[in-house]
Amino acid sequence: MSRRRLLAEINVVPYIDVSLVLLVIFMLSAPLLTQGVNVNLPKGATKPVSDKTPPILISVTRQGQISLQYRQTHSAVDLSALAEQVKAIAAANHDQVQVLVGGDTHVDYGKVMAVMARLQQAGISHVGLLTRPEGH
């Protein structure tokens, strides 16, 4: 009796078929997964924020009062004197200071914008807005 030799080859055709079907599925579903809002972002050169100097914190309370906090000092500030005080702190730090503005949820939007305008007049370019994460 003659023995038949076993054929020990792998049939790769089904694997190629499955791979091509998956490729087509992913190619068709990828554009549907991309969601977003079209925003025209401004272009400009930015520098990383220096962590060496602490930021100036400006808070606007519900009553519209403005307070300035830098390092260990915390004081109430009038809107007219805000620009001079921030400019003095920035000059002492070689203009390497970041200003963070936080406003109460119920404060008038115009009051926060007045603070931002004063900071712009003072020549402060690194201004951030403080927010609270949702659920806190």
Rank of each mutant, 00 (worst) to 15 (best):
G64N: 07
Q65Y: 03
T53N: 14
T73C: 01
M27F: 12
V60I: 15
A114M: 05
I66A: 08
E134D: 11
A90K: 00
D108G: 03
P48Y: 06
D51Y: 08
K52T: 11
L79Y: 03
G103L: 01
Q72Y: 07
L22V: 10
T34K: 14
G128K: 08
R3E: 14
S50L: 12
V77H: 04
R3W: 09
V18I: 12
P133Q: 08
Q98K: 11
P48Q: 13
V12R: 13
P54Q: 13
Q65E: 13
K47D: 10
L119A: 01
Q69N: 11
L100N: 04
A114F: 01
V112F: 01
Q96E: 15
T131Y: 03
H106M: 05
L57S: 06
L22H: 03
I16A: 12
I25A: 15
L57F: 13
L6C: 04
T34C: 06
V127G: 06
E9P: 02
S19M: 13
S50G: 15
A30L: 14
L57T: 03
G103P: 00
D17H: 07
G64M: 02
G64V: 02
L6V: 11
A83C: 03
N38S: 11
T34R: 14
N93H: 15
S19C: 11
R71H: 06
N93R: 13
N40I: 07
H94E: 13
G110N: 10
A91M: 02
K47E: 13
V112G: 02
H74W: 07
V99R: 01
G110E: 04
S75N: 14
T46E: 03
S50E: 15
A91F: 00
I66Y: 05
A83K: 09
L41G: 02
G128S: 08
A45V: 08
V18N: 07
A45T: 09
S29W: 13
A122Q: 00
G110C: 02
A117M: 06
M27Q: 11
Q35C: 00
V12A: 10
T131A: 08
V18Y: 08
V101S: 10
V24F: 14
R71I: 10
Q96P: 01
I16V: 15
I89L: 15
A76Y: 10
N40Y: 05
L7K: 05
K43N: 02
A88V: 03
T46D: 01
M1H: 03
R118D: 06
Y15C: 04
A122L: 01
I56S: 00
V37L: 08
Q96V: 05
I124W: 00
M1E: 04
S2E: 10
Q72M: 08
V49S: 11
Q121A: 15
I16C: 07
Q35Y: 04
L23F: 12
S59T: 10
I56Y: 00
A114N: 10
H126Y: 12
V127M: 12
V39P: 00
A90H: 05
Q63K: 13
G128L: 09
L33G: 15
Q72T: 14
G103F: 02
V12C: 04
R5I: 11
R5K: 11
H136S: 09
A81S: 14
I10C: 04
Q98T: 15
R132K: 09
